[in-house]
Design a protein around this nucleic acid. Sequence first.
DNA 1: AATGAATGAGGCTTCATTCAT
DNA 2: GATGAATGAAGCCTCATTCAT
Lengths: 220, 220, 220, 220
Amino acid sequence: MNEPFQEQVAHLRRTQILTAAVTVFAARGFHRATIRDVAKAAGVADGTIYNYFPNKAALLLGILDPHNESEGRSDPAPPPPDAVDADAREFFRHLFRLRWSLLAGDKLSVLRVVLSEVLVNPELRTLYVERVIAPTFALAAPHLERLIAAGRLRPLDVPLTLRTMTATFLGLVTLRFMGDQHLQDQWDDVPELLTTLLLDGMLPRGSAAPSGEGDSHGTV
Amino acid sequence: MNEPFQEQVAHLRRTQILTAAVTVFAARGFHRATIRDVAKAAGVADGTIYNYFPNKAALLLGILDPHNESEGRSDPAPPPPDAVDADAREFFRHLFRLRWSLLAGDKLSVLRVVLSEVLVNPELRTLYVERVIAPTFALAAPHLERLIAAGRLRPLDVPLTLRTMTATFLGLVTLRFMGDQHLQDQWDDVPELLTTLLLDGMLPRGSAAPSGEGDSHGTV
Amino acid sequence: MNEPFQEQVAHLRRTQILTAAVTVFAARGFHRATIRDVAKAAGVADGTIYNYFPNKAALLLGILDPHNESEGRSDPAPPPPDAVDADAREFFRHLFRLRWSLLAGDKLSVLRVVLSEVLVNPELRTLYVERVIAPTFALAAPHLERLIAAGRLRPLDVPLTLRTMTATFLGLVTLRFMGDQHLQDQWDDVPELLTTLLLDGMLPRGSAAPSGEGDSHGTV
Amino acid sequence: MNEPFQEQVAHLRRTQILTAAVTVFAARGFHRATIRDVAKAAGVADGTIYNYFPNKAALLLGILDPHNESEGRSDPAPPPPDAVDADAREFFRHLFRLRWSLLAGDKLSVLRVVLSEVLVNPELRTLYVERVIAPTFALAAPHLERLIAAGRLRPLDVPLTLRTMTATFLGLVTLRFMGDQHLQDQWDDVPELLTTLLLDGMLPRGSAAPSGEGDSHGTV
DNA sequence: AATGAATGAGGCTTCATTCAT
DNA sequence: GATGAATGAAGCCTCATTCAT
């Protein structure tokens, strides 16, 4: 009866520390940030952190764990118009906008640090794939498949296409991290651009199809 | 008469150290790698490294400097079929394949470390943008513009499109670094996929155009 | 209630480290002494020192700071017979003896190191002048001036005379540091000698005055 | 026949290196100065220095060795009016002025470094005493003794008085090194001041003698 | 004898982690 | 559980010295 209370306190302390870690890591990067930095930002003593996390790396892992979300963000979020019925274009526009909107402020800074470390730290990498990448794929794949089945999309290699789309997101964020001015300026236009680009391609409307059979699309 | 010799020796030593750095950084990451690691891998004493580089970070910078390429690779490379005349599709296919082929073995490992550090190290970031990203854009932009002018591509926001394409590359590499099995298996199919995806989009051939004119999608 | 205790402990630790530093610096000199030496002498770990001092040089500065005196020595010290009324000779005798007595044991060893470093380290130099030299001048000047005003001393260039007197002290200490046997043997006679020398000069009593007019001393 | 030539070359090289060492040590201090600094200033390679000096410390020793004087300075110098006959005052005035004039520019800077190191380096200390201090005493003592014997000076403890005088010089230089403004401004007045102060003392002319017995000095 | 690249011991300092209070 | 001082391993870098050329 009392335990739940204790647990809640503990949970809050964990969250408090993780929040501080997010801030500090975002500001200084994982390696430059010290445990003391995090402790100060969290308003606790250095040692306290070790009551909740076995070591510094665990803070990074903790950040990735949705279980530790600071607020009970309704993660599922406004689910995309789960719609085969809807326009495919509308579906992707929603999807992209949603993803984009999730990348605000702190999230973006964290992503920078996580990406940086994920590239180089196998343990974190595994976790990141498990916790973030794989679920994303798992979530999106059925949609794609249904859209294809419904003929609203070309027959695509679903896994590879998903990866490409995800890659484009990751890459755009990366480029922005690198200080790209264009991206910074037109950041909010990106989802729209992506929608068009991915759905319609770069060729002029009405151009030849891939292996360009003259009539293949005339009938559509 | 003697100087050139000494210079060559020095250049070789530099290269020797950089090569070792590449290996070590690739294996352990920049932060986990110690100067001693690099020195050992290079077969020199710790101090020797500092005869050629002012500090550890300079090793990373050195890796980025094409001036330090181990072999005098004819960097210009087989220039893409500089062709408005050619098929746009052919152009991109070449471009993608070329870029892809440049990302072999060592290069890939280096990219991992560089990316990781670039995300978090402002100095390196600047250098990377200057040395790698910006030149890439500068090189590709005219091609895109000409293709658009020739009506072989839709009127696109060139800078943003370039960034998206680059981003997709970066992102795919990143995903592969994360151990993605699909990408690993089908790595060589990626250029072809990209060509199709970017040129034709995901919609079925003959589908509606971007902002849908009157009838084109009325049937949907 | 508890804080004062912690503070006291911290103060003690500081003192403990400074004391060790004094010993080690005195024995090995500042440059030859390592942080590890000091740490061992203080019975703490290397890192602990950095909880109390930002760097090695700060140890030296700390030594100069009277705030860190190991014992709460009643610094004001037996003030010299603040006496114009008293014999000028008596005044200086007291002054010299006092100064001399302050240069005992540890103090002397510290002075050696400090002097050595002060000569060459601008930062320390500034601090030393501020903390030690200037106060000494400020303290002594009024006395001299009063004695002169009272006609007990010749009209002297007070600042320059003060500097000369201080210089003589510094120089004697320096010579002793150089191992001079005579000084070592007659160390305790120095104050008396100085008193006589400075007050009466080296000329035989009754000799000509500076600009030596024949009769000026005939009356003596 | 050739050897003398070789020797001369070697001597010149030695001198060249020592001169550079003087400059560099004066500018950066002994510890902050590196062998490379000296080598560069001398226009030779690092290793060359070790053909002439066994180690870095030897450079400092070499500086003290009059054998290595850059130019054949007429060291004996305009010997003071070796004069019992002369006025004692004149003798000291000359002496002080001479010593003072020797402390110009480079010499002063070197003294700073040497003093600093002498205080802390036993080997150098010994050498300095042997080469500089002792000879000074040896040179001056007879003069003092003769002056005393001639009744031109009070009966003084010659060794101790000499040390005091030397000390005053050392100390004044030290104070100047510490940046004392007064000394810097009135540097050239110092010899005169010293002459007066040491000969006549600080008491007003005609004041009481040391332990002031009326007649005690009438007989001198 | 001159060179200067190579050496590698050693220094200062940082900081993740521990643990007595 | 919380604290934060203490710890000490480890890293980067300097630089006196050596030695092959």
